[in-house]
Design a protein around this nucleic acid. Structure first.
Lengths: 231, 231
DNA sequence: TCAAAAGTGTTCCGAATACACCCATGA
DNA sequence: TCATGGGTGTATTCGGAACACTTTTGA
C-alpha cells in the first residue's frame, strides 16, 4: 500500500455532480431547481446536485441525487461537462461534473420538504429563470444548448411523451424544446425516414379528426437516422 | 467558515487530468505515451497526466502536465469526458478529466528522462498501440473518435502543418487522421467554400509542377462554414 | 355547419458524391 | 521524355426548406 500515499500528497478538491432535469409542463420547457436553505447563496435557486461518495460512480452519484431530491428514476442521463474553476464555490475547491436529463414530470414528485440544505423545489420556465447560485446559470445554458443540439440529430424526448402519442404531440415537443415553429409536412417526412416510430392500431379521439397513435420502436439509437430540423 | 467542514464530511476522491496529444509523423497519426516507472502498471504505456492542484483550473492542470512532461505549449485543448469509475485506479479513487490536443511534433521535445514516475516518453502509432495502463485505451479511443468527428465539421489541424502549406498537404493530413482516402476535387471544392484559407503569393517547388502555398486565415472558428467530408 | 386538428406532395436549392484527364516542373 | 505531384468540371443524387389545401370528427 505504499502508493496509497501518492494520492494523499496534496489537498484534494471536493467532487460534486449537478443535474439539469428538463421537463415540459403546460407547453413550457421547465427545469427543476432547488432553493438553498443555507449559505452560500441561501435563498437562491440552484440545480439539484451534491457530493460524490467515495465508492460511487459519477453517474450513480447523479442518479442518487436525482432520486433523493426529486424521486426521479429511469431517465436519460448524459454527461455534459466538468466545471472546475477554482473560484466557482466560495466554500472551497469544488469540481462539478454536470449531467442532464429529460423527465416526465408526472412520474416525478419533487419533494417540497428536503434535507437541511433544501428549502424548496420547483419547476422553472427556462425562459424566465430567477438568479441562480454558483455557476449554475452557465451550466444550465450549456445543458440547454446541448439538449437542442442533440434533438437535431437524434432521438430525444420519449420520456416526455405518453406511451402512445400522435405526430402532432411529438412535433409540439420538438417545438417547445427548440423554441421555434416547425413545418408539419417536413417534420412528418423526416420522422418517417428516421424510422423510429411504430404504428399502433389505435387512434386518439377528440372533437376533430382522429389521429393515429405511435410508440417509440425499441432499438438501439445507432439504428436511427439522424434528424436535422429546419431553422 | 462553518461551512468549510461541509466539504470535508466525506473522504474525497483524487482528481486527475489525462491528456491525449496527437501528432503526425511520417504520415502516421501518433499519440504521445509515457512508460510508467512504478506500480501500478509499471512498465506499461500510459497517457500523460497527473493530479490537479488545489488552486488550479482543470485546463491549467492539463496544460501544466503537458508542459512538464512534453514541453508543449499553445495547443488546441478540448475537454473530452470525465472518467469516474471507482475501480479505474487500483491506488484508490481517482477521477480523471480527459483532454485532447493536436500538436506539431517538431515544436515538441518530449523529455526522455522524466520524474520518478516516468521512465520513457514516445510517440505511438494509433493503429498499433501497445497495451495501455488504467482505462487509457478507452480514453484514447474516445479521443480519436472525437477528433475525427470534429474534423468533419470544423477547422482542426493547423497545429500539424507548417505556416505555409499546399492543398495536397492539407488533404493528406485529413486522410491520415480520418484513415481513409478523400477525393481531391471534392476536397478542394469544399475547402474553398469554407473560406478559411488565405492564398499566399508563394509556390512550393519540387521535381514536379509547383504548388500554391496557403495559410490559415485568422478569424474566429464560428465564421467558417462547416465541412462534411465524404466517406 | 362549424371548429379543430389530421393528413398529405411538389418544387426548388444547395451540398455531397462519383468520376478522369491535362499541366508544369526537375531530373 | 519521364516521373511526380498539381490542378481542374460536370452530372447525379439526396436531403433540407418553402409552401396550402382537403379530410374527418364531435359538438
Amino acid at each position: 500500500m505504499d502508493y496509497m500515499s501518492e494520492l494523499d500528497k496534496y489537498p484534494k478538491p471536493a467532487m460534486a455532480v449537478d443535474i439539469v432535469i428538463f421537463t415540459i409542463i403546460d407547453d413550457i420547457l421547465k427545469v427543476l431547481l432547488i432553493k438553498r436553505g443555507r449559505n452560500p447563496y441561501a435563498g437562491k435557486w440552484c440545480l439539484p446536485g451534491g457530493f460524490v461518495l467515495i465508492a460511487e460512480s459519477l453517474e450513480d452519484a447523479a442518479l442518487r441525487e436525482l432520486r433523493e431530491e426529486t424521486n426521479v428514476k429511469d431517465v436519460y442521463l448524459g454527461q455534459l461537462y466538468t466545471f472546475g474553476n477554482p473560484k466557482r464555490d466560495s466554500r472551497g475547491r469544488v469540481i462539478s461534473v454536470a449531467y442532464y436529463a429529460l423527465a416526465n414530470h408526472e412520474k416525478i414528485s419533487p419533494k417540497i420538504t428536503g434535507d437541511e440544505s433544501i428549502k424548496n423545489v420547483e419547476w422553472h420556465n427556462v425562459n424566465k429563470l430567477p438568479e441562480l447560485g454558483f455557476d449554475h446559470k452557465e451550466i444550465l445554458e450549456y445543458a440547454l444548448k446541448r439538449l437542442r443540439y442533440k434533438l437535431e440529430y437524434s432521438v430525444v424526448g420519449l420520456e416526455l411523451l405518453p406511451e402512445k402519442f400522435t405526430l402532432t404531440q411529438l412535433q409540439k415537443m420538438y417545438e417547445i424544446i427548440l423554441n421555434e415553429p416547425i413545418d408539419k409536412r417536413n417534420f412528418r417526412k423526416k420522422i418517417s425516414t428516421m424510422n423510429f416510430l411504430e404504428d399502433t392500431e389505435e387512434m386518439k379521439k377528440g372533437s376533430h379528426r382522429p389521429a393515429k397513435l405511435y410508440t417509440f420502436r425499441k432499438m438501439p439509437a445507432s439504428k436511427f437516422k439522424k434528424i436535422k430540423l429546419e431553422k
